[in-house]
Design a protein around this nucleic acid. Structure first.
Lengths: 152, 152
DNA sequence: ATGCTCTTGCCACTATTTTGCAATAGAACC
DNA sequence: GGTTCTATTGCAAAATAGTGGCAAGAGCAT
């Protein structure tokens, strides 16, 4: 884990503490994984997260991972992106949005500027994204190059 | 059902026929409901669709509704928008995108122009939405006015 | 070190979607 | 209209995802 990852996890733990939540192994583990994942695919499903934790020796129940993630989302520390019928989770500490391949689930980040017009259009019809916590943000569903060239 | 709704359903049935699929009561029923729903909330969940069909006297199994919807999506006749942990379905015959309240599930349509920049940004990172069928399009997740003022 | 209370494990349960297989029903052809 | 071929549906069972209760266990303020 790089120092930047450590810092992000620490910052998140501080926010938990301020919300009156304790610094437990399960929460640190989940935050570690999320911070680590940002380098790669960016987001993880609950079971990916769970397996990664077990592989690292952090023994937690799947239901606990669900509970931890739900709290992180409520506090705005993590955010969700639905991919197919699974929900994926990522750290929400820098403002970004997502482009997802609906076929393989691969995901890329989109900078806030790129989606500003969409957010403005949504606000114009009464849907506001300027709320901490809760699912919010822009998701563009499409297909990645690989899935476009491979099969149909 | 208005004539425009009938036309949309007929057009969809033609596409089914061209794809070698039969014109069955279940498929017509689902298409009717989807065309009818566009006037209101726009999208329906599988069980909303199922209940609506039964209420109209179209007796079909829930699993059949699932199968029909999957095919419609594969053919690009319908498209999906994930809302919480349920999937909602709508007709895809006019190009539109969605703004969704993550709290109550309420949904508004966004015109293609409004989200063009987001689509371009996604394409720039390798995710292309110009594919018929399969989940595609822009979804803005936020909160509607009612859910913003009510509670937190 | 103690005690208060948040957290977790464990487990049962709901909700949603998928699948195999036999029976049924489109539609092309006679 | 009747026949035939095969896609489609009903049925039922199972896979997948997430939730909720409760007692045991673990943070953390003192």
């Amino acid at each position: 884990m790089t120092t930047s990852e450590t810092e992000r996890v620490n910052a998140a733990v501080q926010r938990l503490r301020r919300a009156g939540l304790r610094n437990t192994a399960a929460r640190r583990g989940v935050l570690d994984q999320l911070a680590h994942a940002v380098g790669g695919r960016g987001h993880l499903s609950v079971s990916e997260l769970h397996h990664a934790l077990l592989a690292r020796g952090v023994v937690v129940e799947l239901s606990t991972v669900h509970r931890v993630l739900r709290q992180l989302v409520e506090l705005g520390i993590a955010h969700t992106v639905p991919v197919g019928r699974t929900t994926t989770f990522g750290l929400a500490d820098d403002a970004h949005h997502h482009a997802v391949c609906g076929t393989c689930g691969d995901m890329r980040q989109l900078p806030a500027e790129a989606v500003a017009a969409s957010i403005a259009a949504a606000r114009a019809v009464g849907i506001d994204t300027d709320q901490s916590g809760h699912p919010n943000g822009v998701v563009v569903y499409g297909r990645c190059v690989r899935c476009r060239t491979t099969a149909r």
